[in-house]
């Protein structure tokens, strides 16, 4: 992909983010932060590439540490979001 295609995806995604986030109800702003934190750990993709590469010991060591850090976030972030969301109950359902 050339730079301009990637930039287009980025700019359009910023707009999507803008509208999607404004539609999030303020009551769920804490879960929003927890889940955005979890998904930003998609940086693990870069960590996996580095961690799996052969012939560059320092680079793959950094990659492995980054994999662990990102995994803490992914598992922790989604789990804590799920835990919070499970608490939100409506009056009607009791």
């Amino acid at each position: 992909m050339d730079f301009i295609s990637i930039l287009s995806i980025f700019v359009l995604a910023c707009f999507v983010g803008y509208y999607v986030v404004w539609s999030v109800t303020p009551a769920l702003h804490t879960p929003l932060m927890a889940v955005t934190n979890a998904i930003s750990s998609v940086i693990i993709v870069g960590a996996l590439v580095a961690g799996a590469a052969k012939g560059a010991a320092a680079s793959s060591a950094l990659g492995l540490v980054a994999i662990t850090l990102a995994s803490i976030n992914i598992f922790g972030g989604f789990a804590v979001t799920a835990r919070m969301l499970a608490m939100y109950k409506s009056k009607k359902k009791g």
């Binding site: 995806i9 980025f10 910023c14 983010g17 986030v21 404004w22 955005t36 998904i39 993709v45 870069g46």
Partner: peptide, 20 residues
């Protein structure tokens, strides 16, 4: 990395934090 998943996510999270 030219990775769409990372770019879309970055844009979402970046705008989310900025709006908050």
């Amino acid at each position: 990395l030219h990775n769409t998943a990372m770019i879309i996510t970055g844009a979402l999270v970046g705008s989310s934090g900025a709006i908050l």
